[in-house]
Design a protein around this nucleic acid. Structure first.
Lengths: 253, 253
DNA sequence: CGAAATATTGACAATGATCAACTCTTGTGG
DNA sequence: CCACAAGAGTTGATCATTGTCAATATTTCG
C-alpha cells in the first residue's frame, strides 16, 4: 500500500506508529461519545465497526483487518458516530492528533496516502450497501466471505482458500442485515452445496469460482494492497514539484 | 464548511474552481471505466452515485447535493467503481489532478478539509448501511427524506419543511433496496398518515417530529455545514506550527 | 397529440423474521 | 478435572414484510 513512499516518509511513519499496545477481544477501541483525538492502526487481529439504533437493533458497518486505520473519521469530526470493538486479541499502534497535523503539514504524500486509505474504506462501505440493498441472503453471505478472503490475502495474513473466522452467527446477522436464524440456514445451504463451511473457528471456501458466480463478486481494488500505477504517478509528481520548488528557492538566494 | 480556511486558501480554491460547466439531467459525470483524473464540485442541482450488478439490479449509493465533491475516490484509485449521473440541471466546477497534487503539497489545511469532506461522505454511507440493514420500508423512507431535508438545509438550498424532489419512485426503490411497487405503497402510507407527501415534483414533510420518531433519526454531523470546533482547532494548529517552522527557518539564516 | 415514462393498485408468491425448543461448545469456579 | 451455566448454534412451525406479475391510470415531453 505504501510502496510509493520515500525512505524519509516510511521512517517517520514507523517512528510515529512505534508505540504498540495489545488488547483482548471485546475491547472498545472507539466509543461514540469519545472525542476522537487518536488514530489507530490495527497491526494484528480483527475488529468491527457498528452502530446501534435506540431500540437495540445493531448494524455492523465493516470489519477492520490488519493494516487498516481506525478512528480517522472520529478524528476529523471530533466525535465518533459509531463504535469499534476488537473481535480477537489485537495489537494496535497509535497516531496522535499532533502526528496527524504534522503529517498533513510536512508529509503531503503521507497525507495523500491516508486519504487514499479512506477512499478505499469508502469503497468497501459502498460495496456493503450494494450487498444489503440488492442481494439476497445467500448472495450477501457468499459475497462477504469472498471479500474477507481477498482482504486477508492482500495483507498477507493468509494464502490459501481458508481463514480463521472469529465471527459469530449473531454478528454475521448484524453484518448482513439478517436474523440469526436465517444466517444459520444460509450457512447450512452453503455447506450443503459444497460452497463454504465453518469448522472449528475457521472457514473453508470450498468452491471459490462458484461462490464468485453466486455473489457476482468482482475482485476490485478493495482487496488491493497498494495504490494503482496512476495514483503513484500523481503522488510522485507531488514529490517532484516539491523538489522543483526547493530548487527555485535556492536559485533565488 | 470551509470556515477555518485562510484568505489565501479560499482565494486559491476559488481560482481553482472558477471554471464552471452546466449540464442537463441524465448526464454522466463519472463512468466506471473512466480514469478519474478530474474532481468536480457540484455547485447547483442534484446527482446520484450508483452501482449496477451484472444482471441489471441497481443500487444507489447516495445523492450528491450542492457543495459536495465528486470523483475524489476515482481520483485516488485511478478508476471509478461506480457511476455518477445528474438528476437535474446542474453546474459543476472542476479541479484537475494537478490542482489536487498542488493542494496536498501547498495547502495542508485544504487537504485536511478535503479529507474531512470525504469523512463526512463516509458517515453518510454508514448511515445508509444502517438504513438498509436494520430498518424496514417505512423507516427507511422516512429516514432518507429527513436526511435529504437536513442536507439541503445545511447548504442553504431550502429553509422550510419541503423541497424540490426530483427522485422517481424507481430511483427511490434502487436507493432504499425495495421494489418500485413497495415504494409506492410506502409513500401512500406516509401520505395517509399525514407524515409526508409528494406533489408536483416537491415533497412536503408534514410532521417532522413524528417522522423522526418513526425513523429514529438523529440529526448528526451529516447535516452540518462545517467542521466542529475541535477539528478547527487542530487545523488551526497546522497553521500555527507552520508559522513556527517558518520562524525557525528565519532564525537559522 | 401520442408515445413513453412514471405512478397506482390488486392478487399472489417468496424471502426472511419470529417464536420456541433443543443441542452443542466453551469457559469458570469449586 | 468436573459440573454447570452461559453463550452459540440448530431446527421446525408459523407469520409478516416485501417482491413479482399484471393491468390500468396518469404525467411528461417531443
Amino acid at each position: 500500500m505504501f510502496a510509493f513512499l520515500s525512505e524519509r516518509e516510511l521512517k517517520w511513519l514507523d517512528a510515529a506508529t512505534a508505540e504498540m499496545k495489545t488488547v483482548g477481544p471485546g475491547e472498545e477501541l472507539v466509543r461514540p461519545e469519545n472525542v476522537g483525538n487518536q488514530v489507530f492502526v490495527l497491526q494484528t487481529g480483527w475488529a468491527y465497526r457498528y452502530k446501534v439504533l435506540p431500540d437495540g437493533r445493531r448494524q455492523v458497518l465493516n470489519f477492520v483487518l490488519p493494516g487498516d486505520f481506525i478512528g480517522l473519521r472520529a478524528h476529523f469530526f471530533g466525535i465518533a458516530d459509531h463504535s469499534i470493538v476488537t473481535l480477537t486479541d489485537a495489537t494496535v499502534s497509535t497516531l496522535s492528533a499532533f502526528d496527524i497535523a504534522s503529517l498533513f503539514q510536512d508529509y503531503p504524500k503521507l497525507a495523500a496516502a491516508i486519504t487514499w486509505s479512506a477512499a478505499r474504506e469508502e469503497a468497501m462501505l459502498a460495496e456493503h450497501i450494494v450487498r444489503l440493498g440488492r442481494r439476497n441472503a445467500l448472495e450477501r453471505t457468499a459475497h462477504l466471505l469472498l471479500e474477507l478472503l481477498n482482504r486477508l490475502r492482500a495483507v498477507d495474513v493468509i494464502s490459501g482458500p481458508s481463514y480463521a473466522f472469529p465471527i459469530t452467527q449473531q454478528l454475521l446477522a448484524d453484518t448482513l442485515g439478517l436474523s440469526v436464524v436465517h444466517v444459520n440456514r444460509t450457512l447450512r445451504k452453503l455447506r450443503m452445496q459444497g460452497l463454504a463451511e465453518i469448522e472449528g473457528g475457521r472457514i473453508f471456501l470450498r468452491d471459490i469460482s462458484r461462490l464468485e458466480r453466486i455473489a457476482s463478486y468482482e475482485s476490485s481494488h478493495i482487496g488491493s494492497k497498494r495504490t494503482p500505477p496512476d495514483t503513484e504517478k500523481q503522488l510522485a509528481a507531488i514529490e517532484d514539484r516539491r523538489a522543483v520548488r526547493k530548487l527555485a528557492r535556492y536559485r533565488r538566494r
